[in-house]
Structure formats: C-alpha cells, structure tokens
C-alpha cells in the first residue's frame, strides 16, 4: 500500500528538479500539494483502499507526509 501511494504522489506531485518523495517529505506544509490537490488525494485514497474520510478527518495532520497517510489509512482499515 505504501508504495502504491508513493507512486501516486510521485507521479502527481513529483518534479524532475526535486528529490524523490520520501516518507517524511512534507506535502501540504511545503506547498507541494495545494488545498485542491489535497482533496484529490483524499478521493484517490478512498477509491484505492475502500474507506471513507469523515468530514473532520480531511485534515493536514492526516495528510502531510507519506508516513502519516499510511498510518491514517491503516487506522481506518482496522
């Protein structure tokens, strides 16, 4: 799952003039992922892993880097 999300992030937000996206690369707080892209990311995660974000969970704390995303998806799938 982690690599699937990494691939999506890399393909969608990666940049040739940038190091590959690591587990702790800041996504939202760095401006790499803007607020609209964050909502698209939410949709991607919901579709790919078959769960739903509650309204209050669509939050920077759950989305700001790959590790956090994976931890959040895992917590939802349990």
């Amino acid at each position: 799952m982690k690599e699937q999300i990494r691939t999506y992030l890399q393909q969608t937000y990666g940049h040739p003039k940038m190091e590959p996206i690591k587990d702790d690369t800041p996504l939202l707080s760095s401006g790499l992922v803007d607020s609209i892209s964050a909502l698209e990311l939410v949709e991607f995660l919901e579709k790919s892993f078959g769960f739903e974000f509650e309204a209050h969970e669509v939050d920077r704390d759950n989305l700001d880097n790959l590790s956090r995303i994976v931890a959040f998806v895992n917590s939802k799938k349990q």
Binding site: H15, E19, T25, S30, G31
Partner: peptide, 12 residues
C-alpha cells in the same frame, strides 16, 4: 543545486 521544494519552503 536547484530544488523546487527548497525554493517553495524558502518562499513560504
């Protein structure tokens, strides 16, 4: 060494 992320963070 040009890095988009670094520039963004600087601009912020």
């Amino acid at each position: 060494q040009f890095d988009v992320l670094e520039i963004n963070q600087f601009l912020l």
